[in-house]
Amino acid sequence: MVVGERKPFDEITGMLEGHKKIMVLGCGGCVTVCLTGGHDEVRVLSSQLRMARDNAGNPIEIVEKTVERQCDPEYVEEVSGIVPDVDAVLSMACGAGVQYVAERYPGMPVYPALDTTFVGGSTKEGYYVEKCQTCGACKLFYTGGICPIARCSKSLLNGPCGGSTKGKCEIDPEVDCAWQLILDRLKSLNRMDLYEENMAVNDWRTNRDGGPRKMIREDFQR
């Protein structure tokens, strides 16, 4: 899933300066799962904002709403009746969701309440880690199911570098060395032969380096 983290409160209040009535718009997708932008978080953030503005003698009116997904025009349409009544939308979706809302409502300021951080998953409740960098050309076949592009700090296709120490990355003793994990997996799969093959220079055109990407299902284009 796409993982997001709520922006610092002061940054959010800074964006909302001058606005009197806003909608805080949650998303029922990934950010609900990672506990940062769903129905519950909309309620919490809205309360905090009301309280802060009340304390500052500058109250704000907030409409709370959460849609199924903000990365889908169909669901973004659902709030078309509310938008004309507010003077800004604070979206708690990932960066994709924020943009769908902004695109649908010209002239309406739409602000991000989250920093979209990575594509990953949880290892335990409330603890999320990056797993994929969406490079567009999956190499997990060669690397025992562990991604060196997302999980090696230097994205080395022929790692590990000389900084791998006791299974950890040189940049942080809390971070696993992806290449140690890859080697452990290859060994368990009896595929250490894959390690000895040099991986050729990568074609980054499928990554964002090739420009904004799209994926088209031709059978749905009729």
């Binding site: 022929n158 590990p160 791998s164 120490t165 299974g167």
Partner: peptide, 14 residues
């Protein structure tokens, strides 16, 4: 001297 030691020769071979 980096870890894992066992692949340090194979890595030179690469």
């Amino acid at each position: 001297f980096a870890d894992p030691f066992e692949i340090r020769v194979p890595r030179l071979a690469k």
